[in-house]
Computed example of a mutant assay.
Amino acid sequence: MQVPFGPARAIVPGSPEELWRDNKEWLAPDFWEPDTDSYVAALQTWVLRSEGRTVLVDTGVGNGRQRPDSPQFDNLSTDFLGQLDRAGVRPEDVDVVVNTHLHVDHVGWNTVERDGEWVPAFPNARYLIPSADYAHFDPERSRPRREGDRLVFEDSIAPVRRAGQAVLWEDAHRIDAHLTLEPAPGHTPGSTVLRLASGGDRAVFVGDLLHSPVQILEPSCNSCFDEDTAGAAASRRRVLERAADERELVIPAHFGGAGAVEVRRDGATFAVTGWAAYA
């Protein structure tokens, strides 16, 4: 799903208008609609094959959910599982599900409704959930800031834990020889990046550390969704520095158009050096 999502500087409030205008040539139309000043977002799941296993990175919004705080996500009906099937992935084939964090648009297809009950959508998978986010969003441990947070936890997280398929991790978690989860807090307390190292190839799936490419140019600019702005900015800069130094392909959750970006240092900030298409 790729749609205009709201005014650009409502989504990235600290970004100056000239930052968008000066980069209009490449921001439009995939990342920004200049005529309406709309930020363009993609909702997507990444599919990885590693050591004979199938790994999903984030699971989108889900169908048939009550989402009073997010009308654009309320009671959706999409062909997500059909798209996965056409990509060669059946629910029973999935071995690992990574939730980079527990916001509404990253956990929805963790579950499906059967006979009036939410159950894991991927019956053979381990669901890797950052422990800090689990504690932060669990209504039994903390009071949800919004009704939507409680609903997301109850229909997309708690059923996985009850089924015994949730793995709560902290500090770092190695999935296999090629894939490692590391904390990158700020967007949420448990926000995570997934690092890939295979032969000479390097990539980092950064979740919501980046909502727009303008945050590569100005990493101090947070999104309106970041819960700890100072922490998010620090994590963003740290991850971009390593990506530039180690030539990691940066793969954000919500970039429209090209699915991944190459970056380099540019003085105290960063520059885009190339784009990688969806694969």
Rank of each mutant, 00 (worst) to 15 (best):
Q2W: 05
V3I: 11
F5H: 06
A10N: 10
P13H: 11
G14Q: 01
P16G: 01
E17V: 08
W20H: 05
R21K: 13
K24Q: 15
P29V: 13
F31A: 02
T36N: 14
L48T: 06
L48M: 06
R65A: 07
S70I: 14
D74V: 10
L76I: 12
T78Q: 12
D79N: 08
G82S: 11
R86C: 07
A87N: 09
E92F: 12
D93K: 14
D105P: 01
V107Q: 00
G108W: 10
R114T: 11
R114E: 15
V119N: 01
A121C: 10
N124G: 08
A125V: 00
R126G: 02
S131L: 07
S131W: 06
A132C: 00
P139N: 13
P139L: 11
E140A: 15
R146Q: 14
D149R: 09
L151I: 15
V152E: 08
D155A: 12
I157H: 02
P159F: 02
V160M: 05
A163N: 03
Q165I: 10
V167F: 01
A172M: 08
A172H: 06
A177F: 03
H178V: 02
L179Y: 00
L181S: 05
E182N: 07
P183S: 14
V193I: 14
S198N: 11
R202I: 07
R202K: 10
S212F: 13
I216R: 00
P219Q: 11
C221M: 02
C221E: 03
S223D: 09
F225H: 13
D226C: 15
E227C: 04
A233G: 04
A233S: 15
A234S: 09
A234L: 03
R236N: 04
V239D: 04
V239T: 15
A243F: 08
A243R: 09
A244H: 04
E248T: 03
L249T: 12
P252G: 07
P252F: 09
H254P: 05
H254F: 14
F255C: 11
V261R: 00
V263D: 05
D266K: 11
W275S: 02
A277R: 15
A279N: 13
